[in-house]
Amino acid sequence: MSQQLLIAFVTFAFVMAFTPGPNNIMLLSSGVTYGFRRTVPHIMGVSFGFAFMVGAVGFGLATVFINYPVLQQVLKYLGAAYLIYLAVAIAMSGATKPEESRG
């Protein structure tokens, strides 16, 4: 990896870590609702997930998708189905009881 590319990547990662995106908004909401201690697993999941995504891209996952375009389509539809499942589960869950919200 060239030095110029590495600097661009580190700058991107730094900016993305501190700008309000969907993960940071979820963590904010979780922290306010459930407190810091119960939000720590969520924080760790976001951190490890981002690191995994960056690692997969860095190790050439795009090459796999270029060689096997069907795999990309399958993952795209499975991901969409999972997001729909999560949306339905959240919509059907109801309100959090006050005694469950603080821990």
Rank of each mutant, 00 (worst) to 15 (best):
S2P: 11
S2M: 03
S2T: 13
Q4M: 11
L5I: 03
L6Y: 11
L6D: 12
L6A: 14
F9S: 12
V10L: 15
T11Y: 05
A13N: 06
A13D: 06
A13M: 07
F14Y: 13
T19V: 15
N23T: 07
N24D: 05
L27T: 01
S30P: 07
Y34E: 09
G35T: 05
F36D: 05
F36I: 14
T39F: 03
V40D: 09
P41V: 00
I43Y: 13
M44T: 14
G45V: 04
S47G: 14
F52Y: 06
F52T: 09
M53S: 11
V54P: 02
G55R: 00
A56F: 15
V57M: 10
F59S: 07
F59D: 06
G60V: 08
T63M: 07
T63Q: 12
V64K: 00
F65V: 00
F65D: 00
N67C: 08
Y68W: 11
P69Y: 02
Q73F: 06
Q73C: 01
V74Q: 06
L75K: 02
L75V: 03
K76Q: 09
G79F: 01
A81E: 08
Y82C: 05
Y82F: 14
A87L: 15
A87V: 13
V88R: 13
A89Y: 05
I90Y: 15
A91S: 11
M92Q: 12
S93Y: 06
A95M: 09
P98F: 02
E99I: 00
E100K: 07
R102A: 12
G103E: 13
